[in-house]
């Protein structure tokens, strides 16, 4: 009964790997847009009585993840004039391989975690691996890329993963909280973009490794 959902989740997982392996920022943004679309569809694939709740959630996710946040990101990379990520601390191929490894491991630990968390048997099989892989991919980007802009995108990907994890609570969580969370994430991206831009304005670059004057 979760075929559609699993299909979407697999697509998201593949997109993660794509994001990990590419250096072109615009490609990363495109991938997040597609991910956002898939995320928007996900609530609708869950059978439930509360369809209005699901629809509102779906629309707001689409609005934020497909339109607003990518728009912000594109605006930002235009402003700071950066097209691609160069020489990350972890090269693209190793990043990709680590991403694959995480995907495998998450497939492996998913059943155990389900048991520990006492999730129901008919739980969507792909949900946990997809969530973990997406979140970790985002984190890898956050932690290994040199440009502040890329880190903003990494955060976006990471939050996508968390969102997937949040679907487990779809029926239990009040809509207000979910909307608040989405708003929160959007605001975070906005503030990150703002600070990133101010860094660019003031220092003329957005290289995170050069932001290491404060120590001790």
């Amino acid at each position: 009964m979760y075929e559609w959902m699993d299909t979407c989740l697999v697509a998201i997982l593949v997109l993660d790997l794509y994001i990990l392996g590419t250096s072109r920022l615009i490609a990363v943004i495109q991938a997040t847009i597609v991910q956002g679309m898939l995320l928007g569809i996900l609530p609708l694939t869950v059978h439930s009585q509360e369809t209005i709740h699901h629809w509102i959630l779906s629309i707001s996710v689409l609005l934020s993840n497909v339109f607003l946040m990518p728009y912000l990101a594109i605006l930002l990379i235009r402003k700071v004039e950066i097209r691609r990520e160069v020489e990350p601390f972890l090269e693209f191929t190793p990043s990709l391989m680590i991403g694959m490894a995480i995907a495998f491991i998450s497939f492996w630990i998913a059943p155990y975690s389900q048991k520990i968390l006492q999730l129901p048997q008919h739980f969507p099989r792909m949900l946990m691996p997809a969530a973990i892989t997406t979140a970790m991919s985002g984190f890898i980007i956050l932690a290994t890329r040199r440009k502040a802009v890329t880190q903003v995108l990494g955060y976006l990907v990471m939050e996508n993963g968390i969102y997937i994890w949040g679907l487990t609570l779809l029926d239990k969580m009040p809509l207000l909280v979910e909307l608040g969370v989405i708003l929160g994430i959007f605001m975070t991206v906005m503030v990150m973009a703002t600070v990133c831009y101010r860094v660019y304005l003031r220092l003329g670059h957005v290289n995170v490794d050069e932001l290491s004057n404060l120590k001790g």
Binding site: A135, M158, E159, I162, M192, R202, L211
Partner: peptide
């Protein structure tokens, strides 16, 4: 600005962890 950027990034990563935790409490 540097401090601010460091704070945001560590803050949001921490925030993400906290959110996972919050969700897990719900679970």
């Amino acid at each position: 600005l540097e401090a601010s950027w460091k704070y945001i990034l560590l803050g949001v990563v921490g925030g993400t962890f906290a959110f996972i935790g919050t969700l897990t409490v719900g679970i």
